[in-house]
Design a protein around this nucleic acid. Structure first.
Lengths: 168, 168
DNA sequence: GGATGAATACTCGGATATTTATTGTCCGAGTCATCCTGG
DNA sequence: CCAGGATGACTCGGACAATAAATATCCGAGTATTCATCC
């Protein structure tokens, strides 16, 4: 089992968008080029983030993507679920209800113990993701990466971003 | 993303094996029949559990599988990792090192912030799985399922299990 | 009758197909900026 | 010189292939049992 590679892409792209001035956008092309990714495939994942109301798209020339909310209000869980889906990691198929000893459905009203145990672990994972926001990622980035490299990226992005014609 | 269906199978089968008398075994055929599963495919997952030293196999007629340790010493994490693999859920492919702004490898000695955040959540998941053992599952089962159904399964299993010819 | 041997039936083990999900690509719909034309 | 409109280029959006992984299956290797035979 593994998470979709698109989760990594989405997280990095969202972090970059978090660094833009308010209202400004960055097109898929630039996001893909910055990270050395396939532009068309990244587009697919950005669509998922758009459908999840995490980023929003501005169509047409001078268009692109931007965050729909402030980085403090976007949790990592949202991004992971938007791209990788909201289905649980562990899916109980109720095999206890199969086989020669199976009873009727009314005998299985209480949840399967294995299902409960796996759901408990999954809940811990989701809570850990929910407790971290894009702002934390950005803060870590600012603290961890040297100033020169940050400025290089800032300039590179500034040269390709599109300023909002109308402020939201 | 989803966990392998075999994880569910392995957990249920391990729970059944936990209820056997010391040294007794149960063959793949019976485990598969009890849960209504494909015998041959279940065999594949039981092999994985065997390679992980969680269960052990007794070959030949009157052979089968049994736990290699007591249920208290077998964590759910072990079973999940044995069947689904030990690779991390989130694999950082270091896309920060790609693209036009990439520096040499020495500039990326500190781990990626996104990688750290995802690993933190994954660690919470693994710890939750590590803190629960097969004994907990069995205890939940005893407390949750009515006596009659438990006795039915006990009898069914007793009629197909093989007692150890030599005690370990 | 007891012991020995080969045959046998049943088990696990790994190598091999099939299906599903993920990854990757393409072309069309929509939109804003630009350019040209006319007043 | 200014306003208006058609043009055009660039963007996102969803439908369409290629690849990788999970699912499912089959046949071979090994072993304790069992039965027949011989002493």
């Amino acid at each position: 089992m593994k998470l979709s590679e698109g989760v990594e892409w989405g997280l990095h792209c969202a972090s970059v968008l978090a660094g833009l001035p308010p209202g400004a956008t960055l097109p898929t092309r630039s996001l893909a080029e910055l990270h050395g990714l396939s532009e068309t495939y990244l587009s697919k994942h950005l669509q998922a983030l758009t459908n999840a109301r995490i980023i929003e798209s501005v169509p047409g020339p001078r268009g692109g993507y931007r965050l729909m909310r402030s980085p403090e209000e976007i949790t990592l869980l949202e991004i992971v679920e938007a791209i990788d889906g909201r289905e649980p990691l562990f899916r109980c198929t109720e095999i206890r209800q199969r086989g020669p000893l199976a009873r009727g459905p009314q005998a299985y009203r209480r949840p399967c113990g294995i299902h409960v145990a796996m759901a408990r672990a999954e809940q811990a994972w989701r809570e850990a993701l929910h407790s971290q926001t894009l702002a934390d990622i950005v803060a870590h980035y600012v603290q961890d990466v040297d100033l020169q490299q940050r400025q290089r990226q800032e300039q590179w992005v500034a040269g390709r971003m599109r300023r909002a014609s109308w402020q939201p």
